[in-house]
Every structure is written in structure tokens, then in C-alpha cells.
Design a protein around this nucleic acid. Sequence first.
DNA 1: CGTAATATTAGCCACCTTTCTGATATTTAA
DNA 2: TTAAATATCAGAAAGGTGGCTAATATTACG
Lengths: 228, 228
Amino acid sequence: MVTAVEIEKKTISVIIIEDFKLTRVGLRCALNSNPDIEVVAESDNAVDGLELIKRYNPNIVLMDLGLAGMNGIEATLKVKEINKDIKVIALTSHDREEEVIAALSSGAMAYCLKDIDPSKLADVIRDVVEGVCWLDPLVARKVLDAFPKQETIGILKDKSSEEGRVPLTEREYEVLKHLVDGKSNTEIAKELIVSVHTAKAHVCSILQKMCVNDRVQAAVKAVKEGLV
Amino acid sequence: MVTAVEIEKKTISVIIIEDFKLTRVGLRCALNSNPDIEVVAESDNAVDGLELIKRYNPNIVLMDLGLAGMNGIEATLKVKEINKDIKVIALTSHDREEEVIAALSSGAMAYCLKDIDPSKLADVIRDVVEGVCWLDPLVARKVLDAFPKQETIGILKDKSSEEGRVPLTEREYEVLKHLVDGKSNTEIAKELIVSVHTAKAHVCSILQKMCVNDRVQAAVKAVKEGLV
DNA sequence: CGTAATATTAGCCACCTTTCTGATATTTAA
DNA sequence: TTAAATATCAGAAAGGTGGCTAATATTACG
């Protein structure tokens, strides 16, 4: 691994998509005062913005989420279709949690509120170009809490918290898998090449061990706890 | 809103929990060379580390995830029990995606690989103290892609992409919720104060609209897609 | 070797589910 | 206002589900 220090500082090209003219101007001024950052184009709407992105192929897109017409989420998806390497930073003035999550899962790498310090924004841009994910303090924890919890359980259950729970046998896990696929006892029996009676017996003991009343609850619990 | 510039630069206190002595020393040296960061304690295991955290109440905990005994995920949970304001930065040498997600949903605010540039780590610490979420480039996109997608759909369906998918009616969503709870048609009917026939009719159309064959598949699909 | 756990099969019964056909009232949108 | 979508109710047929008891291999562990 070479760690030579001949880094040629490349300019980071930025396109701004933002409907408020004043904000746009403010962003451009703030960013262009950094020698390594250059705002190459701007648009007040997503459609034109996407055209600019195709033309300029920038490193970074600053995307306002509260656009009229095509919103920032859709636009972010489309940016990713144009070139997956273009990094999108989502910008808004508010902090609607669902919007943040939607933006991130659509391909945005960062989420900033508009009252971010200009020099901080420049830092964020430099980070994001490298692939860093950066979330504004006002939303960070809320967003992280939205993560599915079963992963955590998965990691923890290796070492501890094995007590109290009745484990399913191998065979029962097989049956559970089919059950979650929505297979009937008859179908499960065919898959496992056993009689329907056997399949039923397994399902019965699965229900008991999982402390549920029917196969729907078993399936839902299995999915939620990541048992399958 | 006052934006006076009398910011008194406070020192950021850091505790390091990391089993490799060399890495620990390296981290301490690298961080203590920053005037605004002070490593106040270190531990090579989670149990002692938690005691130190109780005693020193630091701003930041650098947590190695690959600890023997109690792992970093559990330890992170416990740090949050001690004081929710203490920010945990997860550190590892590899990039197991599940581990990252587990760490973040357990309360970590950032995820760094151990080969991070020391000055960059200092920057991350300063960001994280402010509540920023920071994810290493090597895992950022993978982690963001792990987000539940229904939020995105939710935002988008307001404006566009109404095609292709048959949406459930309000009433059908109510029924679906009970269905996922494992309720029988009879029970659903009682809950909604309608006849069993009606409940059945709703379930029928839910199954058709969701393109599944039985209620188990409907329930599993609903859970997986976050429709409930 | 023998005991315990697991896997297998069987029959029975009350109840539930899914699909079908068909009907009526209410609400919504064109 | 008319047409379409939605919610409601009904009966019946075919098959599936869950709980019960009971018996027989197979496997694993001390």
C-alpha cells in the first residue's frame, strides 16, 4: 500500500439544485471561496438540474429536497441512474425524519440542514467526495434509530441471551422456513418428503416453542427476529 | 438567535476501549497531539472500560467492536445506559456490514476503520461531539442501502410511481394489520365490528392485490415491506 | 448399553380459510 | 348525474389448520 504524499489536489465540481435563488447564491459564494471546490452549474428545478448533471458530470450534487414538481428524492434516484459515482448531498431547512431516510436510501450520502456553517459544508463536501456518510446532528440519532434491530439481536445472541428461549431443532427450522414462504402443511410435507402428519407435528411444536397461536404469528415473529 | 463569537474551546474528553495495546497507544498519541482532545482513560476490555466511563463521564468513547468477552455492541448499549449523551465511535479493522448496522442501532454515532488518518479521526471526533453521524467510506453506501425502503416509497407515491402497484384501501390496511397480528377472520370481524363475511371479503382482496396465495405470505410480505 | 431427545407416521375432530357467486348501500370522481 | 370504487353482508363447497393421543425408528450422550 503506497502512502506517498504527492497528492495532487483536484478541484471538486459541484452542481446546486435549489429553488430559492437567495440560497443558491449564498451556497455558490460560500463554496467558491474554497480553492478546491467549484460550483459548475445551478438549477432551480430537478428536470433542468438533471440535464446539467448529464452535461457536467460533477463530483457532488447539492440537492434541495423541497423542490416543486419532481422532488429531491426522485431526482436523487435519477442522479444515481446517470452516474452512480456522483455523490448527492441532501439539503433542507427542516428535519422530517422520513424524508431523511428516503433521501439516504435513494442514494444520498449526506444530509445537511440549510443553516449549516459554510466552512463546515465545505468540509462535508470534501468528506463526501471520499465516500463518507455525514448526517446533521439534528437528525443523526433519529435516523440511526430507524435501523432494523434484528441485526443487533443477531450479533448479541451469539454470546449471551441464549437463556429463557427454547431453541428449535434443525428440522423445525427447515419447516419454519417453508412456513414463512407461505407453504401449507401438505406442501411442506412434499418438500421434505415426509407425511403430512409429520409436517403438522413439526408445525405444532414450532408454534409451542415460539409461544404463538398460529402459523401467521410464527411467520411474522420469525421474520421480525431474523430467524430466517 | 445569537451568533456571538465568544466560543470557549472546551477540551473533548475521550476514553479508548481497545484490546490491542499497540493500537491503543497509537490512538492516544495521535489524539493527544490535538490541543482540544484529551484521552482521559483507556481499557483493553469492555467491563473495565464501562467502569472508567462511569468514573470519567467522557464526551467520546472510541469502542473497538472486536473485543473478547463482552463485545463492542453490548458495551455500546451499556454506555448508552450510563449516559445517553456520551457519543460512541465504533472502530474495527474489517467491515462486516451487519456489525456496522448493529453498532449504529445500538447507539454508536460513527464507524471508522482502524486505518483512518489520525487527523481525520480528530475531525470525526469533533463532528461527533456535535452529534454528527459519520460513516467510513468503505461501509457508508452499504449501510445506507440497508435502510428500509418503504419510506422512500412513501415519499414518492405522493407524486408519482402510482403505476404498476395496486394499493390497498384504508379498510384493507386495517384488516392487514390485524392479519399480521395473527388474528383469524372471526377475530378481525369482531375487532372491526363487521360480519365474518366482510372480514373474509377484505382478506380475499388483500391476497389478490398483494399477489399472494395465503395470509401467511401476505403477513410476511407486509412485514418485509414495512406496510404495517 | 440404556435413556433421552428427535423424527417419523397415524387417525380424529372441531374449526378456520379460501374461493365462488351474488346482492346492496355509500362514497368518490368524472 | 352517472359511473366506478368501496364496504358491507350471505351461503356453500373444498380443503387446510391446530390440538389431541399414540406408536415406532433413529440418534446422541453419558
